[in-house]
């Protein structure tokens, strides 16, 4: 551990660091209590707590529909991204050429391109493909945006994988497909799961591209929140926000738990 010894300047620096951490937590400190307010307007609860905004959330078909749509789209997009991304990462790892490395970097593009540029590109292409405002269109777009996360996590897992295991399997008569299913996939499962969670979150959280390529039919949760913030700010959005925080935290905890188990 780095030790600077005792000094008032170091203490001040630490204090500032903690202040920074509090600044980071401030929005969650606010949004969770606001969701339990008794008032119909945005405020911290001052006359006890109420679940009315959660009741409103779970009885309102608009919010429920949005949650359902978002879950469906995120699960399907994650599955698509995990299948193609994992296969691709394994293939590139096995090919291990300079050209393959450049291809891998190219596959990280959706992460690097600013969302507004991707949104423009998707919109124009989806007009051509006739995919605007369709489930298929949103799922494909989200899967494309999620693929880099899968490539990164699976590639990281593979870098710790002893390639000779796979060679042994191939020498003993397994073909590439069997070796992948029986040897590689079980060993890199933590990386695949981690990629799946990240891919799910990438879709679950996506707003900019969705706004561009959908209109009436597709109403994901982020889109509903977006409309909620712009039209009428009411504490139901805080309840939704709290729910989103809880689901995101749960997904992150699953990922960290898997990672710590994989490390142990």
């Amino acid at each position: 551990m780095i030790d600077f010894g005792r000094s008032s300047s170091i203490s001040v620096a630490k204090l500032l660091g903690w202040a920074g951490a509090l600044f980071l937590l401030l929005p969650s400190f606010v949004i969770i209590p606001v969701s339990f307010t008794t008032h119909h307007y945005l405020s911290l609860p001052d006359e006890g707590l109420s679940l009315r905004h959660y009741q409103n959330l779970f009885s309102n078909p608009l919010w429920l529909g949005a949650i359902g749509q978002s879950l469906l789209i995120a699960v399907l997009a994650a599955i698509l991204a995990v299948i193609t991304g994992t296969l691709g990462a394994i293939g590139l790892w096995r090919i291990a050429s300079r050209f393959g490395d450049s291809l891998r970097n190219l596959m990280l593009m959706p992460l690097i391109v600013p969302p507004i540029v991707s949104a423009l590109a998707f919109y124009k292409a989806w007009v051509v493909f006739g995919l605007l405002d369709s489930y298929v269109g949103v799922i494909i777009a989200h899967a494309v945006l999620a693929i880099p996360y899968v490539i990164i996590t699976v590639t990281t897992s593979l870098s710790n994988f002893d390639g000779r295991l796979e060679q042994a399997a191939r020498n003993l008569g397994a073909n590439a497909w069997e070796a992948m299913w029986l040897i590689i996939v079980p060993v890199i499962r933590p990386g695949i799961l981690s990629g799946a969670v990240l891919a799910f979150l990438a879709s679950w959280d996506e707003i900019v591209v969705t706004l561009f390529i959908s209109s009436q039919k597709i109403m994901t949760l982020p889109k509903a929140i977006w409309n909620g913030i712009r039209d009428n700010i009411d504490p139901t959005v805080a309840a939704v926000g709290t729910l989103v925080i809880v689901i995101t935290l749960a997904a992150t905890c699953i990922r960290l738990y898997r990672q710590s188990r994989a490390a142990a």
């Binding site: 929005p27 606001v34 945005l42 979150l201 913030i229 700010i233 805080a238 926000g241 989103v244 935290l249």
Partner: peptide, 17 residues
């Protein structure tokens, strides 16, 4: 925690504040 928090929820929280 904020790293994983939706950009929309964060913007909404800042509006509230």
């Amino acid at each position: 925690v904020p790293f994983w928090m939706s950009v929309l929820v964060r913007a909404f929280a800042w509006v509230t504040l």
